[in-house]
Design a binder for these strands. Sequence first.
DNA 1: AACCATTCCTACCAAACAAGTAGGATATTA
DNA 2: TAATATCCTACTTGTTTGGTAGGAATGGTT
Lengths: 134, 134
Amino acid sequence: MLSKRAKYAIKALLYLHQNEGAAPVSAKAIADREKIPYKFLENILRELRQHRILKSERGAEGGYRLLKSPESIKVSDIIRIVDGPIALIPCVSENFYEKCVECLDEKTCRIRRLFGEVRQAMLPVLDKSIAELR
Amino acid sequence: MLSKRAKYAIKALLYLHQNEGAAPVSAKAIADREKIPYKFLENILRELRQHRILKSERGAEGGYRLLKSPESIKVSDIIRIVDGPIALIPCVSENFYEKCVECLDEKTCRIRRLFGEVRQAMLPVLDKSIAELR
DNA sequence: AACCATTCCTACCAAACAAGTAGGATATTA
DNA sequence: TAATATCCTACTTGTTTGGTAGGAATGGTT
């Protein structure tokens, strides 16, 4: 399951993409329009900024903007930042690999193979950028 | 992420499938060979029995057998029994549907659409039976 | 009958995680 | 200086995860 955190992050980025302009967009505006708890959203936006997905401007009239181009922000990247691995089991994760404690032989593990396939099936979809979502 | 519970369940069923024979297989045998905590496995096997995936025989020389044919036991079924929904967000789940609280319009929600696609990509892989896993 | 291996069942537990909330410090503009 | 923002740390509350404990019931073996 995707966490609400990740879902809110994607929503916020979509909103930001859709409302790009001269002025940055405040967390409050996003929270109101997307019905995301304000303080929770603040935390999420901060994390996205720290990972250089967006940038912020402080003070009155401040807010957030996309740092990268919307075409280069992949949903999979956001999920990895906020939730961690895409793969359903750690031993087939590219970015968060971990060996199964109880695994006798990774090479022949049928569960590993299956969930490797699952990952391969999911990735092309999740690798879409926020600009591509329709 | 898949829970350990679900992973153990699949492992147990694979072991059971591979060791089908005259005598049923004990939980202890499965636990030893697959390195699954014994008491935890007991719980899992009970749940699978209650969902009519396998049957048990009590007493000495007792144990478990597959109730359904291995060709008809889909990995997706096991996950649904043990972990719940396959879909990453509830609003695209077929079997565990729930509306998003904050969703303004499901029909036009881009996140919903994307994760609908993800689900569609995952399902053919997870719909494989335990007999098909190589 | 006694023993033993097994399933069956309920309950408990500790640690981690999820989904926020609280309170205030800091920066910017008007 | 007032108002509006971001920024940051810490706290809280409930749920889930990954087990463990203890024993009752069942059935085969001797």
